[in-house]
């Protein structure tokens, strides 16, 4: 069977395709199914890409850093901080360790307590930011050493809450991809039903075509081109509506940090434009299969 050419998709039905009478109902059904499914696919796509972005943001921003918290009586804090920095300096896998300044700590607390918090007068633990090198350190080994030398230190390597989040983001991403597959399958099923109904409604046309010497391929092509054309333009319509809806979404705020918006970013805008050709391909395969199955059964 001749592959569908882009020209056929854009120009529509060549002379030979006129042998199939225009059928309003299946035409509208195909157009609607393709448009609706592509509209949904745009969101499934946006969801997958956004969660993918989320997972990688969290991995990147949190994987390479951890925090050491030193809670001790005020007079011991400076000494324990010094000791902890010493330990960290001699720990393999730690690239840099830095005690946060008073101002930085205040900035971290500001969203919760407001700018007027008198940090000086509160027994706030000292935080040390640890940046790992490419190999990373062994958190259990470090905890043991710290327990011996800096009793007030608590190591938070972020993994405890980062891993489930990244895992959840990955799951959502897989679900998004699964949704895309299901949407494609449902569109294929609907177009197959529409094609079957069109073929059944045109049994008389097919009989006449066979009588005058048409090969099955000729007949199948006439139906396939028609359905592929409709699915393509239906998908273009659905994609347009989906993109418009995405553009209308409120922007994620910069302060949201790694809580990224659902919209598309940068070159990801290319992906929705892949959907109409994919819809056309799904329709091409679905209709071709339906037509060949039905024609084989006919005399």
């Amino acid at each position: 069977m001749k592959l569908l050419s882009p020209a056929v998709l854009l120009r529509g039905e060549p002379q030979a395709d006129r042998v199939v009478p225009p059928t309003g109902f299946t035409a509208r059904l195909t157009l609607f199914a393709a448009a609706a499914m592509t509209f949904l696919a745009v969101f499934a796509l946006a969801l997958s890409l956004a969660t993918g972005r989320l997972a990688s943001n969290w991995s990147e921003e949190l994987a390479r850093s951890s925090t050491l918290r030193i809670s001790a009586p005020a007079e011991q804090i400076a000494a324990q901080t010094e000791a902890a920095l010493q330990v960290l300096a001699t720990t393999g896998g730690v690239a840099r360790a830095r005690a946060l300044s008073r101002e930085e700590q205040q900035a971290l607390l500001e969203p919760w307590f407001g700018p007027d918090l008198p940090v000086d007068s509160l027994p706030i633990p000292q935080l040390i930011e640890i940046i790992e090198d490419a190999q990373g350190y062994d958190p259990d080994g470090l905890r043991l050493r710290l327990a011996a030398e800096v009793p007030g230190a608590v190591l938070d390597d972020h993994g405890r809450w980062r891993r489930p989040l990244v895992k959840a983001a990955g799951r959502i991403r897989s679900l998004g991809l699964l949704s895309l597959l299901l949407i494609g399958a449902v569109m294929g099923a609907m177009i197959t039903l529409a094609a079957n109904s069109a073929l059944a409604a045109n049994a008389q046309v097919i009989a006449v075509l066979r009588l005058v010497g048409a090969r099955d391929d000729f007949i199948a092509r006439a139906f396939v081109r028609r359905f592929t054309f409709r699915a393509f333009w239906g998908a273009v319509l659905g994609m347009g509506l989906g993109l418009a809806a995405l553009l209308a979404l409120p922007e994620a705020q910069a302060e949201g940090g790694f809580l990224t918006g659902l919209g598309l970013r940068g070159w990801h805008w290319v992906w929705p434009f892949v959907l109409p050709p994919v819809a056309a391909m799904v329709s091409f395969l679905a209709t071709g299969g339906a037509a060949r199955r039905m024609l084989r059964r006919l005399a």
Partner: peptide, 10 residues
């Protein structure tokens, strides 16, 4: 086969 039948019809 079906294609040969189609040829015959011509």
């Amino acid at each position: 086969d079906r294609d040969e039948i189609a040829e015959i019809r011509r």
